[in-house]
């Protein structure tokens, strides 16, 4: 299968931004492009860019906290998505991630979610879990969903 063949790590040297501990710049640009679509309707109006950056940082922290074997799988997923031919052929996104349109990303996510290949469905599930977790663990997401946050134990 094409996806399987492409699902290998690229051999480019990885330059890591010290602010981030697990994702390289190309992986971060993939996440940054997907976040506004995955979280459309959830990110606060007017503060979308700032919230998006927080989600990217949260995804990075989450990946850094995974065991090496699982981290390697996530690395493979992002390497695949960052690799231009795979982005076009497997994800169906024809522009580089920073320029990709909302609609093309919506279509990509929907295709992977509904794919008959379990591997693509699992790729969608991984992106979904990482991004939704990063946002909903952030207290900024709570007012919109009516969650008051944990109770104060020692206010009395």
């Amino acid at each position: 299968m094409l996806a399987r063949w492409l699902y290998t790590q690229t051999s480019e040297p990885v330059v890591k931004d010290p602010k981030f501990s697990a994702l390289d710049a190309s992986a971060r640009s993939v996440v940054a492009a997907i976040v506004p679509v995955m979280l459309e309707g959830a990110l606060p109006e007017g503060a979308t860019t700032q919230a998006r950056d927080q989600v990217v940082a949260g995804v990075d922290r989450a990946v850094a906290g995974l065991p090496p074997a699982v981290r390697a799988e996530v690395d493979q997923l992002f390497s695949l998505l960052a690799f231009a031919p795979a982005r076009c052929l497997v994800a169906g996104v024809w522009s580089p991630w920073p320029e990709a349109s909302r609609d093309s990303i919506v279509a990509f996510l929907g295709r992977w979610r509904d794919s008959r290949f379990a591997l693509l469905r699992s790729g969608f599930a991984a992106l979904r879990q990482l991004i939704l977790s990063a946002w909903y663990s952030n207290p900024q997401s709570w007012p919109a969903i009516g969650y008051p946050g944990p109770p104060l134990l020692e206010s009395a």
């Binding site: 679509v37 996510l109 939704l132 977790s133 909903y136 997401s141 969650y147």
Partner: peptide, 24 residues
């Protein structure tokens, strides 16, 4: 809890967000 619920609910984008607003 928010993460547990958001990641268990289906979908993404507006669909998922609409459900999350019903959280309480």
């Amino acid at each position: 809890h928010p993460v547990l619920v958001a990641t268990t609910l289906p979908g993404f984008g507006v669909g998922n967000a609409r459900w999350m607003r019903e959280f309480p």
